[in-house]
Design a protein around this nucleic acid. Structure first.
Lengths: 114, 114
DNA sequence: AAGATAGTTAGCCATACACCTAAGTATGAG
DNA sequence: CTCATACTTAGGTGTATGGCTAACTATCTT
């Protein structure tokens, strides 16, 4: 229990699946129950549940159970991890693009795309 | 060939691995060769090569070969895909946090963390 | 030409992933 | 009490992932 560890690996792994991204998109509009989240004939429930559990273990989502209904809500903070990583990288892209430009205007070696 | 398809799935999958993230971080400082990128005793070359190929197939990285040396450089555009997705989501987080706040101040149902 | 260097290919292995069906457990409605 | 609803658990399947060793190719260096 308490296996809820938001690591970059886990967070990005969650995002690497369209079903899980769809859930996050849906939850960004507000809390929702399992059956609401599950698109009608898309997937068997147990398979879908697994995705929700993966999301929950990564801390991207929290769930509570009322009676027999479990509802999910977004838990943004872990997403900031991913966001931050990309932010840091993005700062370098500009530099990198400058360098690229420099290389293209001063061709030292022919870029042969083998 | 030309299996270079930057999809959200592929891009996020690349980012879900610390070795691959490290490569991207390294390349954000400028182009580099395979052996430079491979940390000394971290991993066998063929295993490392696989990561580079995964990055290249996702379009995050491009490579050229000069003589026996292959060098890699960052290819930022696909990263923008990931960046954009998170951007869209982030806009909702604020709204979502507001809703959360609203729920916390107007408790309709006890949030029992089962 | 011989040897070192840089990368590549082939093939193996264990574990993780994404899906399924079938059967089980609460819980709410009638 | 009975039945439907809403999940849950158990267990199985095929493919993908992430790692390895061993052996090979191509290119410098001497």
């Amino acid at each position: 229990m308490a296996n809820y560890l938001p690591t970059l690996d886990r967070v990005f792994h969650c995002l690497a699946n369209s079903t899980r991204r769809r859930v996050l998109e849906a939850l960004s509009a507000g809390p929702s129950t399992m059956t609401e989240l599950a698109e009608p004939g898309e997937m068997a429930m147990p398979s879908f549940l697994q995705h929700l559990q993966i999301l929950e273990e990564a801390g991207l989502v929290r769930s509570t159970k009322n009676g027999r209904v479990r509802s999910y809500e977004l838990n943004p903070p872990p997403l900031l991890l991913a966001d931050n990583w990309l932010d840091k990288q993005r700062k370098h892209w500009n530099i990198c693009l400058d360098q690229l430009h420099h290389l293209l205007t001063n061709p030292e070696s022919e870029p042969e795309h083998e």
